[in-house]
Amino acid sequence: MIEIKNLHKSFGSLEVLKGIDLTVNKGEVVCIIGPSGSGKSTVLRCINKLEVPTSGTVIVDGHDIMSRETDINYVRTEAGMVFQQFNLFPHMNVLANVTLGPIKVRGVNRDEADKLGLELLAKVGLADKARNYPEQLSGGQKQRVAIARSLALQPRVMLFDEPTSALDPELVGEVLEVMKQLAMEGMTMIVVTHEMNFAREVADRVIFIDQGVIQEANEPKEFFANPKHPRLRDFLGKVQLAC
C-alpha cells in the first residue's frame, strides 16, 4: 500500500530524514514513536507530499508521488490525513466540513454528499452535531469530525499525526476508540503517537524513529518487552515515567 525507500528530507542545512525505508501493507496498522523533533511528522507529510522529499521514493497505492505524471491531488484523496491541531474549517458547519471534499473534489452532488456526511458523522458518534460550528465542539469532537472529513474521500490509507496530543486527557479515549474501530474494519493506518497503550493494543508494527532514521521496528509485544536499541530503551523508560 505504501512503499518508502531511502527517503531523505532536509530543511536548508538541517537534514531531518536520513534515509527512511518503510513498507506498509494493506490493512496494516503501523505506529511511529520517537522523541520530539526526530522527524515523525515529516515522514507522514512526505507521504502525501505536504512536504516535498529531498530524495528517495514514496509510492502510495502504486502512485509514485515524485513522478511528474502523478496527480498529487488524487493521491491525497487516497491518503487521508488527521492533524494534531484538527485544522477544521471554522467558517463552515460540521457537515460542510465533511462534505467539502466529496463535493469539490469528487463532484458528488450536495444531497448525496450530505447523506454520506451524515453517515460518517454517525460513525464517529456526532450525527447530532452536523449543523454546529467547530468552535462549539470539544477537542475530542473536533478531532472526530476531522477523521470523518478525511474518510469522506474514501481513502485507502489514513495518516494520523499525534491525533490526541492536543486533547485534555479525558477526551483522548473517544478519539482512540474511533481509530480502533477503523483499524478493526481493516483500514491501513500510520499513526504517530505517544499513546503507548494504543500502540501495544492496536498496532501490527511499532517503529522507533530517532535522529532521522528508523532505529527499531517490531511487532508491539516484542517491541515493548525487548527493546534492543539503547536509545529506545531510554525513550521508553522516560515515557513510562511520565505516565
Binding site: 502525501n48 505536504l50 491531488n73 488524487y74 491525497r76 484523496t77 487521508g80 490525513m81 492533524f83 491541531q85 485544522n87 477544521l88 474549517f89 467539502l100 471534499g101 469539490k104 473534489v105 476531522a146 472529513r149 478525511s150 469522506a152 474521500l153
Partner: peptide
Amino acid sequence: GQMEAARSIGL
C-alpha cells in the same frame, strides 16, 4: 494548517 488541511483532502 487551513491550507494544508484543504490540500490534504485533495483540493
